[in-house]
Write a protein that binds this DNA or RNA. Sequence first.
DNA 1: TTGAAAAACGACAACGATGTCGTTTATAAT
DNA 2: ATTATAAACGACATCGTTGTCGTTTTTCAA
Lengths: 207, 207
Amino acid sequence: MSPKVSDEYKNQKKTMLLQAAKSVFLAKGYTKTTMQDVMDEAGISRGALYAYFDNVEHLYMELLQFEDQVNVLFFSPNDDETSWQQITNWVHKQQKEMEQIEQTLTQANSEYFLSIRDSKKQEGETYSTTRYDRIVNALTVLFQSGTKKGELQPRLPAEMISRYLVSFIDGLMLDTAHLGAEKTRVAEQMEALLFSLREMLRPVSGK
Amino acid sequence: MSPKVSDEYKNQKKTMLLQAAKSVFLAKGYTKTTMQDVMDEAGISRGALYAYFDNVEHLYMELLQFEDQVNVLFFSPNDDETSWQQITNWVHKQQKEMEQIEQTLTQANSEYFLSIRDSKKQEGETYSTTRYDRIVNALTVLFQSGTKKGELQPRLPAEMISRYLVSFIDGLMLDTAHLGAEKTRVAEQMEALLFSLREMLRPVSGK
DNA sequence: TTGAAAAACGACAACGATGTCGTTTATAAT
DNA sequence: ATTATAAACGACATCGTTGTCGTTTTTCAA
């Protein structure tokens, strides 16, 4: 008499299921994906899948958090690069993501967040809120530390610039998700973004 | 022996159905809306509704075009205002829309366009493409005519600025649609936008 | 090797939505 | 009034998805 599999086994299995789910979400987006799809993709039974996840929404939620976990690391304090370099790096990373948007959860993410509207009004503090705040905050901190170090001389409040930046990226991602990277001219738009950021942040030259 | 109702009657009825559909879409968004919902809202039978619209997607498509019809008028050539005034007017109009985003089809629009992904890849020229091009073009023309009149001295290509502007607006609308206008600080972000536009377009002062 | 407990299975009932189609009702020309 | 025709109705068969639950299989400790 005993519990039957290690907790590690269960974690591995869960991760496998999340991988299967991810490839379905990449192919079909969030809204059109069903539990059935995930079962088929994972080659697992109905009962087994439901033992791990209650429904598609929970499934996506867990996948999202799992993926976010990986991406947190980007904004670690970094003294090798100037603040402006860190900013342009981040911007280019976003650009890369858009240029291969088919291999990205961007579209599914948008669908997911849009679908939460009803559930959200009840609660108030949702993961999507937290997520938005987190990224805005990370950028704000970056701008502020750059300012303290004398590398930036912002002409607008740091937080305002952060939000502005996030809005632009979200919009370009959305448009690119359904029109494609060529149609939206991702590369050009990124130039325009950097132009704007330079005007807002005034990075001191040479730094 | 004869046809039974005037073609005008049918148009009126269609418009009524579109109104009913609109109020459902406002309440439930695109994805969650069913033909049944529209029947209930319109107080009409199944057969009648299907006589006018094949399915939800067609229904939304027609609604979208109907609504767009109304909004085309904004960019008429206008000599009473400077180009910069026209631009700020447009920006403020967008702001208004976001501040009452609950009464707006913004959310449903995003859902709708995101849901088209599969159908789109086949065709290539979809309404969403046309729509994007139309707005980009309208803004580009506005910037160019302002430049010719000597009211603007753009530091980037007009079309680049247009796309950039559209991306930002789309992003802020998306974020506002699921976080609310207070959370995203719409008003502040619009300030930041105007700051950027001023730097990009260099409107000559006094004009 | 055995047996208890957990994990995996898959049949099934229930639901909600879809699109069709035979029937009924309303319209307007005769 | 009559009648041909179209509009409106709503019952119905169908489909895909969901979540459950009794059964079978696997796992590991004793």
